[in-house]
Computed example of a mutant assay.
Amino acid sequence: MDCVAVVEDGRVFVREFRHIKKGDLIACGRTENGEEGILVYTDGFKNLGDNSGIPPVAGGHDNFAFRVGRSRETAFSRDYDELYELLRHDREHGSIVWVMGPAFTFNGYSREAFAKIIDAGYVDAVFAGNALATHDLEGAYFHTSLGQDIDTQENRPNGHYHHLDTINRVRYWGSIDKFIEQEGVHDGIMYALERNRVPYVLAGSIRDDGPLPGVFGNAYQAQDAMRNHIRKATTVICMATMLHTIATGNMTPSYRVMPDGTVRPVYFYCVDVAEFAVNKLVDRGSLSSRGIVTNVQDFIAHVAKGLGLTD
């Protein structure tokens, strides 16, 4: 999405608008049926079903039918079962990218659950912002997130300074990994990412405190870093961050050509407690996305349990 097809020396390259230049030969057309050379085809994987270990893509329904979309009234048990199967397959045969909002850091159990998912090898890259890393490290450093105890959710005295104290201490050491090493941090999401050498991209925003060292302040640099991982992704799971989810959805292709030459879909999940966020992703053009409307702390707990990582 948000790219154009550029022809160079008889080959076609897909490029972002910011990377095209005067004189490029760009395929253009206003119709989608192929009569002008542009064909939009979104049903290539609709009837997928084989012995590859990848769950089939649901498809085929009446033009008019009730409950076609996903909402808070939908039972997602089947979606969870398919997701467990997909994660087990892609841990060995693909690349799994997780896109996370800071809501995970507000609860000690969800931090622990995702850390176990990282330790078990189900995470190949993480996209987030300054807040996810800041409040996760605050949870490890002060046992609070935005000043609230991560287990009891009780406000701690002067707790509203904790995230700033954490940022300043990380900046003192110069990097997140050095902070973890020097301050004896031994739990949480960032600790698990560093311990397992899992790459992460922290894309900053104009309202960030600090930010932490390693956060991209340049949006284009952050986008390039994210695309480096998305090019290899076979499953993308976005949770509780509408901004990062839509950004990732816009740069995620609908399929991946695997090293053995086979073509498979890229599975894209959007998990949010707000139907608006789930539906807006589809409205923005990410046609292959799947939505799960639920609290993300509960979602990650279910995933960790479904994968046999927690009781």
Rank of each mutant, 00 (worst) to 15 (best):
L309E: 00
T241R: 09
H302E: 13
A301M: 15
C238L: 00
G285M: 11
N295D: 15
G285R: 12
T252Q: 05
F276Q: 11
R264I: 13
R256D: 05
F276I: 05
S288I: 07
T310F: 04
N250T: 05
T241K: 11
G249I: 11
C270D: 05
Y269N: 01
G291D: 13
G308E: 10
H302F: 02
V282L: 10
A301K: 15
L281P: 01
D272H: 00
T234G: 02
M242W: 02
G249P: 12
A225D: 11
A222M: 05
S286N: 14
D298W: 07
Q297G: 14
H229C: 04
G308R: 08
T310G: 04
A222W: 01
K305H: 11
Y220S: 12
V273A: 04
N250D: 06
A222Y: 02
A301L: 15
A277Y: 03
A301P: 10
R264S: 11
T294A: 14
Q297A: 14
R290C: 13
A274M: 14
V273H: 02
Q221R: 13
Y220M: 13
Q221W: 05
C238H: 00
D272K: 00
Y255Q: 08
G306T: 04
V263Q: 07
M242Q: 06
T241V: 10
H229T: 05
V278W: 00
Y220L: 14
Y267E: 09
H229S: 06
D224I: 14
P259Q: 05
A225P: 08
V266R: 02
M239N: 07
S289G: 09
K232Q: 15
D298P: 03
I246L: 11
K232I: 08
V282F: 06
N228M: 15
G308T: 08
M258Y: 01
A240T: 04
Q221G: 06
T235R: 07
G249L: 12
A240C: 11
H302A: 10
N295K: 07
A233E: 12
D260S: 01
I230V: 09
M251F: 09
H244Q: 05
A274P: 07
H229A: 02
R290K: 14
